[in-house]
């Protein structure tokens, strides 16, 4: 079945989809473990979400409704570009409503609204290896995962505390999945980490350039690394959204002039719009 352009449904050929689908199933069966896959060259550059796109292309069907966000927003340029790509090569319906989507492809955020069963969250991942800053050699990190030897990461966090009094990681904050695998949550703000824990939706992660797929099944334990006397603390700006008044959402800081003026608004545009609409309806 072809939609426009002469390419297969979902752009990828069926052999490639099968290969990715097999990798996805193993990823779900081994939560947090990075499964290598034969990532293809996509018509978008590496770093622009080729991993997430390949995962979405292997999962998506005509019944789906796709939402794509970048930085929490549906109308950032890269989100628009990816949404258009799927509208063109898969002819699927797209939506900006979190609650109405069956597949949400994201870069750098988890939506504020609690996701539910029947939804799939696809993360675009630049560096799947949580240990890469501490050990760049893939052959070494693979061995560490095999032995569940994560001492390096604990030492790094401990050194942060000794030096700064805090763990100095604010995004891409490492997590333990199912008590076994250390995993990169992708560069989401640490604020979003707790949403991953026992999420009812399926979470899939695609790293195209690094050629890795991993997953967190629904209702699976995802714990941000911390110490008893230095518990994990999600951070957000201590302010309310200037548009919808939310005090529970992650905020973008917008500089309004060159005299130090700034305002804070929700990063999740659908969350913010929904709240504004509800407020208007109530008035």
């Amino acid at each position: 079945m072809t939609i426009e352009t002469g390419y297969n449904f979902g752009y990828l050929d069926e052999n490639t989809k099968r290969m990715i689908r097999r990798a996805l199933l193993k990823a779900v069966a081994i939560p947090g473990h990075q499964v290598p896959f034969g990532s293809r060259e996509m018509p978008l550059p590496y770093g622009w979400g080729t991993g997430g796109i390949q995962v979405t292309a292997s999962v998506i069907g005509p019944q789906d409704r796709l939402k794509v966000i970048d930085q929490g927003a549906d109308d950032t340029t890269n989100a628009v570009s990816i949404r258009r790509f799927f509208a063109k090569v898969a002819g699927v319906a797209t939506t900006e409503r979190t609650s109405g989507a069956t597949i949400i492809q994201t870069r750098h955020r988890i939506p504020e609204v609690k996701l539910r069963e029947g939804q799939i969250l696809v993360y675009q991942v630049p560096m799947p290896e949580p240990l890469f800053r501490l050990e760049p050699r893939v052959s070494e990190t693979r061995r560490m995962h095999a032995l569940a030897d994560y001492g390096l990461m604990h030492v790094r966090l401990y050194e942060d505390i000794a030096r700064h009094g805090h763990i100095a990681i604010s995004y891409n904050y490492p997590v333990m999945v199912g008590g076994r695998y250390l995993m990169s949550p992708s560069p989401i703000p640490a604020f979003d980490n707790p949403k991953m824990h026992r999420m009812p939706a399926l979470q899939l992660f695609g790293a195209g350039r690094e050629k890795r797929i991993y997953a967190v099944p629904p209702y699976t334990s995802v714990q941000s690394l911390d110490f008893e006397d230095h518990p994990f603390q999600p951070i957000r700006a201590n302010a309310a959204c200037a548009l919808c008044g939310a005090r529970d959402s992650y905020l973008d800081e917008v500089v309004t002039d060159d005299k130090g003026g700034r305002m804070f608004v929700c990063s999740d545009t659908d969350y913010c719009n929904t709240r504004q609409a509800a407020r208007e309806a109530a008035e």
């Binding site: 079945m1 449904f9 999962v59 998506i60 069907g61 005509p62």
Partner: peptide
């Protein structure tokens, strides 16, 4: 073949 495999995979 394309949509059959997709829906079975899901």
């Amino acid at each position: 073949p394309v949509l059959g495999a997709q829906s079975c995979f899901r």
